[in-house]
């Protein structure tokens, strides 16, 4: 690992040592955060996977039923029937924090209300009512699924970011600091030895002169 470009003196050494300590602490903390995030992520992913399979299956059933409805009632009329629906989609969004990652939470009001049939019963058939009921029940799941999948995406981004930081600390910053500290220490030791040798030589010289 390449050492940093530093001057070999004691002040620099002290500074690098404190930097190394901070880097090690930071690495430890981030690693802990990453582990916990991955843990939470796996829980959310498993939930979301299960719910996705469920919803996909229900959708298939719904479309099959709805196709029957469409066969009996003309699409234009069907559209008209729904257009007069008084419902307006209101989604309440609150924010939740998972380990400091902000994720949305959806609250879909329509799914909690009693189902209302916005069309005249005399021109429609009972299959339409049935598929509408089915879709009404599904709505809650669809919204929850969207929430879970969004959470997955946001957590993925955060985990990726943190992993990069952890790796940078572990494989770049910390080795660089260690290498620089070793370099400074060697240099200081070398100076110390040089000094010692010089002193001994001077001592020997003065001894010789004294004895003359």
């Amino acid at each position: 690992m390449e050492k940093l470009n530093v001057n070999p003196n004691r002040m620099e050494l002290a500074e690098l040592k404190s930097k190394l300590m901070v880097a090690k602490q930071g690495h430890e903390l981030l690693k802990g955060k990453q582990d916990e995030l991955v843990h939470r992520f796996v829980v959310v992913v498993n939930q979301s996977k299960k719910l996705r399979a469920d919803v996909t299956e229900q959708f298939t059933g719904l479309y099959q039923e709805f196709a029957l409805v469409g066969a009996e009632i003309s699409p234009d009329f069907l559209e008209e029937a729904f257009m007069s629906s008084g419902n307006s989609s209101n989604i309440e969004v609150t924010e939740k924090s998972i380990m400091g990652v902000r994720v949305p939470q959806f609250d879909y009001s329509v799914s909690k209300e009693e189902i209302s049939y916005p069309y005249s019963f005399s021109y429609t058939n009972s299959e339409l009512d049935a598929s509408l009921r089915k879709c009404h029940i599904m709505m809650e799941k669809i919204v929850l699924l969207a929430e879970l999948e969004k959470t997955c995406e946001l957590l993925t981004n955060e985990i990726e970011k943190i992993r990069r930081r952890v790796n940078a600390l572990e494989f770049m910053t910390i080795p660089q600091l260690q290498e620089s500290i070793r370099y400074i220490q060697m240099k200081l030791d070398e100076n110390e030895r040089g000094n010692l040798v010089r002193l001994i030589k001077v001592k020997n010289k003065t001894k010789k002169q004294m004895s003359k």
Binding site: G70, P75, M83, S89, N90, I91, E92, P118, C135
Partner: peptide, 20 residues
């Protein structure tokens, strides 16, 4: 308060109209 949108072919998404 936020809204909800559904994008797709007409046949698939028509039913969501009933839920606002």
């Amino acid at each position: 308060m936020y809204k909800m949108a559904v994008v797709g072919d007409r046949e698939s998404i028509l039913i969501f109209k009933a839920f606002g």
